[in-house]
Design a protein around this nucleic acid. Sequence first.
DNA 1: GAACAGATGGTTTTT
DNA 2: CCATCTGTTC
Length: 767
Amino acid sequence: MISIDDLHRALGSFRPVLDAQQRSAVDAAPTTALFIVAGPGTGKTASLTLRILKLVLVDGMAPRGILATTFTKKAAEELRSRVLGWGFRIIDALKADPAISQSQKSFIETIDINQVRTGTIDALCEQLLREFRNPGTQSPVLVDEFVSKTLMLREGLFGSRRDQDPSLDSFLLDLHSESAKPYNYHVGTKAKLVKEIWERRFQDQVVWSQFPTGSAPARQLVSDAHQSYETALRLAGLVDFSLLENEVLLRLRAGQLKDFTEELKVVLVDEYQDTNLMQEQIYFQLAAACSGSLAVVGDDDQSLYRFRGATVDLFRDFPLRYRNQFGRSPSTVFLTNNYRSSQRIVSFVNAYASLDLTYQAVRVASKPALIHGPSATAGLPVVGMFRNTVKELAEDLALLVHAAFRGLGYSIPGGRIQANATGGDVGDCALLCSSPAEFSASGKPRLPLLLRQELASLTPAIQVFNPRGEDTSTVDVVERLGGLLLECLDPNNSLSTQTSGVSQEAQTVFANWRQKAIDFASSASAPPGLVAYAQGWANRDSGRVGYEWPRITTAIELVYGLVHYLPELHNDPEGQVYLEVFMRQLSACQQLGKFEGRIIADPANTGLSEASIKELVRDFLAPIAEGVVDVNEEMMETFPRDRLSILSIHQSKGLEFPLTIVDVGSDFKDLRAPAFKRMPTAGSASHRMEDLLRQHSPLGVPARTQTDRAFDDLFRQFFVAFSRPQDVLLLVGVTPTQPGGRVPNVATGWDRNGVCRWANNLPFVMI
DNA sequence: GAACAGATGGTTTTT
DNA sequence: CCATCTGTTC
């Protein structure tokens, strides 16, 4: 083992050493419980990483006794690569350090940093059930979101035609919208709501027997729907996220994961502000196995996942809750030195956090403000760009980005926005929005689309990177592959139009796909052999005398057969992402259907043959056409350097960009714009859901009103957005929603009492 | 400037 | 379904 000073010296060999606050988190004794409240840019991951390495190198803890979890896959990857990256560099530095003795060096030689367990809590639970399963049992398969949604619809709602029950209908409608407005309320919405109640049952650890069903027929139906859904999952050997975590919690409580817990020495949890009660209980169980060695890191101001059951109170009240469980208090460490942003941005962010008086009550008690780092520059002023229409906004924004990254810079009062001469590119710029979707629900173009078009029209053109916002179904390769699949499976277009449960929207997309595929196959650049291959499939004709077309083939064979003619699907990184969309949905279809992705060609039983095709149309292709299947971001390379990234504020959590553009209101041209996104008049579905279920949970009824919680959530969202930039923060929107404008908006300085605090005291310069 | 008719736009985030 | 906006008419 080495000394703590050796460790910090080794870190100093390749990056700045940690500050005093960070060191107090890192250096604490291994069994100390820690409550680390870390504002944005304060080196949260750095401290966590070095603490892990300290436990291994200084305290001699076995790497596999260390468990570090985070909330998102992205953060988990980030933590893992940091632990490995720093670990190897520190080990190298120590080996080269003459002050380290030979016996210490041979100790270091034995360390395998790779054995530290890192990952999301769901990944950990899945791993635990697989690695430590009871002899003779199968570990359950975690279902994909689409599969669980479809099962809730089919088993939960269509089963016993619960979807048609008027009492269930009105019960769910009350949850769906504030004054029971039926807008956008259909059977899919009902399934979603019933599933949300199901998830909250576990997340909030609801005592279901206390949920009053007897006198309330609608509640009984919800309960029945859950039962049918659960049965369907169990029969197929599947679990969803809630069942998975719950199963692990039950096994921990029953002492059935001893093989794992006996090895466990310390638990570290990142993003703890997004934890729910079930997860807290898992962590407490794990910590109990290692004498309470639990360190949690988070920031109450950055809790964004209430809709997924996150309860920020668990973080805020952690010292108390830990004490009640373990009989001692954790040490609280505040990380307040921001190493990300310029001085002006840090003061803007501080001012924003304290803008609304009522918000202060939900923050961690006596939380200090952020302090800019010792080498932070004053920086450029925060900038606001507001235009009369979204179109004008997109034009001017495109010109700004173009001037900053492809021209001579863009002048603003008090400075100039100019790409960093040493390797800056458009990838240093991101547009953060509440949603990156290119079209509104009613099909109107939104800022992400208009900006993409404006940037493309400039010279040289600038591309955007918006994998979540673009419509998957209109991507060239998706159209070709989708169309070819349809033409091969159902050449006469007779089955796909008759398949029940396929929306009109999907039918339109199908027609378009087919046309694109035909055009492609008949074009001069069509790959040789494609037409013959497709016709062989269409006619179910092997093309060889004496060889019959097999009675059973699989959709996978067909997809791979076609991919051969569309090489971009496996050669090109972006193509691979779209091929994965098809493969993932095909596997969902296999889990859901009777035919499990098989294609029957039986002349004696055309009914069966047709049914096998219809299943593929409904569960494999229609969801892709409807845009229900999202691309998998894990497959994406990191943000391309030469494109402007467009992402949701949620996705931006934990990231930083030299130039950050925050869309504070490109959708809000008048008072009809949705209030829940700018100035809530009531709670939304997740707040109503909390009130419905938490009264039967150990959490109890939330202390604040639904409307207050809706405001709190919005302030947190913009707090996250405003704290992403390193050098320049640019707020954009349409004129009516600028500070003091006609459309009130918490992102432009209104507090929840309807007073715009920025109206006469603009904290940014207008351009 | 009031009164009326017709148009408009409407839940986001994800393991 | 319904609140709000826009345009027209007096």
